[in-house]
Design a protein around this nucleic acid. Sequence first.
DNA 1: CTGTTAGCGCATTCAT
DNA 2: ATGAATGCGCTAACAG
Lengths: 355, 355
Amino acid sequence: MAKRKSKSTTIYDVARLATVSPATVSAVINGTATVSPTRTKRVHEAMAALDYHPDHIARSLKTGKTNAIGMVVPDVTNPFYPEVIRGVEQAAGKAGYSIIFVNSNEDPEQERRGLQALISRRVDGALIACCDNSTATFDLVARRNIPSVFLDRVPLGVNAIRISTDNFKAGFVGAKHLIDLGHERIAIVAGRMDLSPHVQRVEGFRKAMQEPGIAVRDEYFRTGSLSSETGYQIGKQLLQLNRRPTAIFCTNNKTLLGLVRALAECSVSCPDEVSILGFDDFAWTENFHPRLSTIVQPAQELGRRGMEMLIQQIKLHDSGETNPPSAYETVLLEAELRIRESTAPPASVGLRVAP
Amino acid sequence: MAKRKSKSTTIYDVARLATVSPATVSAVINGTATVSPTRTKRVHEAMAALDYHPDHIARSLKTGKTNAIGMVVPDVTNPFYPEVIRGVEQAAGKAGYSIIFVNSNEDPEQERRGLQALISRRVDGALIACCDNSTATFDLVARRNIPSVFLDRVPLGVNAIRISTDNFKAGFVGAKHLIDLGHERIAIVAGRMDLSPHVQRVEGFRKAMQEPGIAVRDEYFRTGSLSSETGYQIGKQLLQLNRRPTAIFCTNNKTLLGLVRALAECSVSCPDEVSILGFDDFAWTENFHPRLSTIVQPAQELGRRGMEMLIQQIKLHDSGETNPPSAYETVLLEAELRIRESTAPPASVGLRVAP
DNA sequence: CTGTTAGCGCATTCAT
DNA sequence: ATGAATGCGCTAACAG
């Protein structure tokens, strides 16, 4: 009544039915060697008849390659990552790789455990968005010589292969947009300063502010978590300042959302009284009222290119280049400033025009 | 100069260093048999010294189990699914399963190919959100006897194990909310009628309308894709009707977004002139102005419970129950009507109060 | 309690 | 062009 393992059909079954050797079957499957048309046909028929599917597990054990890569992400529910995943999926699918997915939940311990699992599963490589700025994860993959590329959130100060948005430039461009509009009282909701993208965006912001000599006042520089709640809280504080900012720059997509709510709740109209600028572009950015100006990261391309870089790394690894001369590579993708309706000149700007 | 495969350390290496047999090492790793404390300690030390990680591939080949499940999703960028994935991840992680991820891109062909890959990788089971209402996918896994549970979008009319929101009830409750508020001119943006959740939501909607005898006018019943663009287009059409609806019910989260934009563009105020009600709850729902009333699916729990059901199925499968009497199970989870600010009585309701 | 042995399904020499 | 034999790393019998 109980059958423990319903033995699936193997290459031997196919060989027997096609009256050839297992090696021949293997050859036609992998195109490893040329086999006569007659036997090729017989093999194909046998495979179809038996509904045979090669066992990747056995193949992997033999070849040492799994054709799977690990993807570790800090928070799938941040809509930026699904976009990235989509890009990864496309490039991976095209190259015959499957994706083993790990969500670290912004927890270094979970990140470590997930990575261990990936290592045990012998993934051919890993695509990693870290959950903090520690180099522990980098050390782990480097020590075990796992082909890896770090994406979006990258470890700084080590020889990692990385790909991310040019966040310095993005921060610079965003601030410059606000400055060019005539704003001087510009606040920034800077997110988590232990994450590379935020650090770099802030640096770009400071650079842009420095050029025209606008001081970054302490009360305008705020950090915190990446939640909409944080954006909401900081937003309310900012709006209650005696010297209220005329523009607010958010380095994160969710904080922007909370900020919008704070504005509505304080009956501050946007962009008339306060301009706001954020990051990333999702369905809601376009449909909010006013439509939100944001700096759009090429999320999908980030995933696609990241995967391509990883494939490159895997090839290098397999060809035995232990320490390729230029092992160390950083790819930066351009973000795009998409100006919609939430940024405009400050109300006072008209007054200053007269000579 | 080139070293093709940097042989990783095996169970034999550990055994040698610990001066025990490989079987003993295996026993301490898996707790299969009791080994003396002395040897246990030696083994642990050897493993640590060698930084040994068991090879899941080899283990799988031997045991016939991969401890991996496949998860196929139609569109990761629909924020509903990341939420589900998160739940799956939690339950899977706890039980020691890894997730092999497939995004079908709403394309049956990609869904089929992804499933084939999962089968070749010998996943222990699959968690599937279909991309259409065909039973092809069900047939595929049923024929190969792969433990599977269908989630959210499920094939109807077959003996599949399923879990989803109680969509009929959700549709009913949503419509009833609008009716109780006093609305009679209620339009519905019904999404894709080849998807089980939408079909059932519409049925619930019709049932609720039928009780008080409100007709569902053809011009108020609209279907289309699941994009915000569709919501926008349909929204504009609805608002230009001579007999404009006083409430609009969206069976999908993205169409709701487009609808909101249509309202803003037509300068129709919500909820004063038109109430709107949608599905799902994300950061933006809470932060829109007005805050959006929605029917909230327990997305994360859907994922968690779905994974638990799958584990159950896998156990059943392993114990050899070829056709368990109650192989056929459907779990329905309750959605929650979260009333915020986008639904209110129609403007005309005050007029009708007088006897 | 511990060690020896035999495959899991496949790709790969090496003969032919 | 084809087939026979070998072993990838591990666990499950079995024997001691």
